[in-house]
């Protein structure tokens, strides 16, 4: 639970950006860079808030680069994102070297007085640091925003069928810029949550390398939905924790195999959620007897992830 906020924030941020139609592939490096920035800024100013603000600003800035490259300059989103991944990672190491292994401020624990004494659930849910509460609130807010608000509907429209959004007077490019930036800022918040709460401080390697790629997979697994995405994030954190537990349970397996377990499991999950779209499955389904088919189709439908229709597709104006 305590380790989940960074992943949750990053998943939400990427979900927003992708919902508007822009893939920000730079996540893996961006999380590192913003973690470093957050720690350095919080340490320099001795205010946590400055750390969070700086990380969110850097996140938005990288989002801006992705947006400029892909929306204004029409370059391949994946290319730009991939390069930024490496750039951010290396920048984090270079710029972070002076603050590595130094003590710094960190987010204090904040049990909620009213609820913490509930049996079982109390200590798990309500005796956490504020970021945990914030990440839960952010998940709910993101869901609410997408499902219940007018700008949220506009955002979904822009990623789904930009031409139609345009016909309804929506400035699709502006919307995409906005959410790429906002998404980047949320990812930055995730990075800050790493270095100011979950894994206080900075070092090289910092220990979250690879997490960004997982976040990208979780977004797919979550079917671009904040709630399902957050569930995926919790699942991943749980798997990571299991790795340590498994070491004591299965002493014969080399310990280093466990930390990598979540990764193959993630691909399997991806395969499960996307395979239903493929032609041979469709063809195979058609051959099944009607009764079985309906059952299988229902299962596949439930698992199915279908991306925003215009994800990664540049907007062609007439």
């Amino acid at each position: 639970m305590a380790a989940s906020p960074p992943v949750v924030f990053a998943v939400l941020g990427e979900t927003l950006a992708e919902r508007s139609g822009v893939i920000n592939l730079s996540l893996d490096g961006l999380l590192l860079l913003t973690a470093m920035v957050a720690f350095a800024a919080a340490r320099a100013t001795t205010t946590l808030l400055a750390g969070f603000a700086a990380a969110m600003a850097v996140g938005a800035l990288v989002g801006l680069v992705v947006a400029v490259a892909s929306l204004t300059l029409r370059q391949h989103q994946v290319a730009a994102g991939f390069v930024l991944t490496l750039l951010c990672q290396n920048l984090a190491y270079v710029l972070g070297a002076p603050v590595a292994h130094l003590p710094g401020p960190q987010v204090a624990h904040l049990p909620l007085p009213l609820f913490r004494n509930w049996p079982v659930l109390g200590p798990v849910l309500f005796s956490q640091d504020p970021l945990v509460y914030l990440s839960i609130a952010a998940t709910a807010a993101a869901w609410w925003y997408l499902a219940k608000t007018r700008p949220g509907l506009v955002l979904r429209g822009a990623g789904e069928r930009p031409a139609a959004a345009l016909a309804r007077g929506i400035h699709v490019t502006r919307v995409r810029y906005l959410y790429t930036l906002a998404g980047g800022a949320l990812v930055g918040l995730g990075g800050a949550a790493f270095s100011l709460a979950v894994k206080p401080g900075w070092s090289r390697p910092y220990g979250i390398e690879g997490t960004g790629w997982i976040v990208l997979a979780i977004v797919i697994f979550g079917n671009w939905d904040p709630l399902r995405g957050a569930a995926g994030a919790y699942l991943f954190v749980l798997l990571q924790t299991l790795a340590t537990v498994l070491q004591s349970l299965m002493p014969r397996v080399p310990t280093q195999v466990f930390p990598t377990l979540p990764f193959p499991l993630m691909i399997l999950a991806l395969l499960l959620v996307t395979v239903g779209n493929s032609e041979w499955v469709q063809r195979g389904l058609r051959r099944l007897p009607a009764g079985t088919r309906r059952g299988v189709v229902r299962v596949l439908r439930a698992l199915q992830a279908s991306p925003p229709a215009a994800l990664g597709v540049p907007l062609e104006q007439e």
Binding site: A3, K199, P205, G210, T241, T255, Q256, P259
Partner: peptide, 23 residues
């Protein structure tokens, strides 16, 4: 004793010492 696999954390290759300590 819990062994992480190397002298320091290499993400994806060693157990994360933060997680081990936390555990």
């Amino acid at each position: 004793v819990t062994w992480i696999g190397f002298w320091f954390n290499i993400p994806g290759q060693t157990l994360d010492p933060t997680k081990v300590a936390d555990d």
